[in-house]
Design a protein around this nucleic acid. Sequence first.
DNA 1: GCTTAAAAGTAAGGGAAATGTAAGGCAGGG
DNA 2: CCCTGCCTTACATTTCCCTTACTTTTAAGC
Lengths: 234, 234
Amino acid sequence: MDLSYLKNKRILIVDDEQELLDLVVSVFRNDGYQNIATAKSVREATALAKEFRPELAVLDVMLPDGNGFGLMEQLRKTGDYPVLFLTARGEEEDKFRGFGLGADDYMVKPFLPRELLYRVAAILRRTYREEKTLVPLKNSVIDFARAEVVRDGEHIPLTAKEHALLSALWRGAGRIVTIDALCEAAWGDNPFGYENSLMAHICRIREKIEANPSQPVSLVTVKGLGYKLLVEDK
Amino acid sequence: MDLSYLKNKRILIVDDEQELLDLVVSVFRNDGYQNIATAKSVREATALAKEFRPELAVLDVMLPDGNGFGLMEQLRKTGDYPVLFLTARGEEEDKFRGFGLGADDYMVKPFLPRELLYRVAAILRRTYREEKTLVPLKNSVIDFARAEVVRDGEHIPLTAKEHALLSALWRGAGRIVTIDALCEAAWGDNPFGYENSLMAHICRIREKIEANPSQPVSLVTVKGLGYKLLVEDK
DNA sequence: GCTTAAAAGTAAGGGAAATGTAAGGCAGGG
DNA sequence: CCCTGCCTTACATTTCCCTTACTTTTAAGC
């Protein structure tokens, strides 16, 4: 299961201690998270959240100009994303207060960095599970869950075979996928004698995903070997 | 925000110690959970899960005929619901192993009953977000709470199967829901041989929600893949 | 425990969209 | 110039799904 799409999620980290803030940020960075924003106070955090639009927040409970609970309520006004609290040892009641207000998880300092990462990953996986299905190409985007291609804002439906072939190509994204492998993916048992049909499907797929189907840039032919699906970014 | 609908969720609890099992069950019962099933071994749990179809599982790591991790992998074959692990103190590595396999939360024994309840509630809340009772479609509105469709001011009742199928479609709103998933939703365990019946139900649902059932715009077919429910606004 | 209406399941004919087929084209290499 | 490998198009075929009418099951009320 590919979960790498979770590493692009926007994460907001709020703590007033510079040292801990740096630690937490580096923990996330080292694990591959790309999109991190930080704040050191309630005020800073609420202002930042408006334009950063976090998809998950890690909040310290103790803050100079208020506390994490109040902050969460502020944040919930601009978006309903999960929240994980951090608190100093011994404040047992805080734990329940956070959960009671709708927090998603709670950790007591000092904590193991690895545990923080696991807990955040678990929350992200549950919350944003459907989105692994969007695959950006040069001139279009494939949406596997909806079985359609979006090009110039237009939604073009995919048929079952097209969906199966694109899935196989995407699994080997960037690498060559052989004719045999594609036939296997689309026709399963006894995948023989369909080479011609495969070609017809490739042609139809190109009409949907390429701006100029006769000069393909996303689904390219590798003569004598097979086909390659070139995916943007990732 | 009304969260009482979460108390109806089917919860599976697995532990080999009778005493702890009783404790956990009573903790849930006292908090209002209606639908609890228990098992004391991997074997018992996998058999039970097939027909109980849990919506969340609480698993002890140590079991007489295996461990909770193996059990989770078994369970994941029949459904993708969240899992919370319980383990004895000191097995730090276990914690990471559970998360690594895709667990949703983890607690060390002995734990505070209240914390267990909060953690379970947090997971349920995220996983089964509020079942919106009113769902607007192009030519009608589904009212799940009343099990009826409103079209042109007319109230058309939904039958049990229609309701179950529409719920499953609504859960995957916009995305393709496979024939298998729909059969699973409507007929539970042993969801085979009902493809034809499913079609008849789809046909009847369309007569209720569509202005022109032979040209559906809300419940559309994706040949060879499944069906999609297209929701307005959202 | 009947009776009866509504709901659910089954089966078959027809139709449209998806898929398969084949022929003509085109480009590059030998 | 021919041959190979792939593209493209038009057309044939097949598959899947819709629909309808009918049977069976369930549940509700007496």
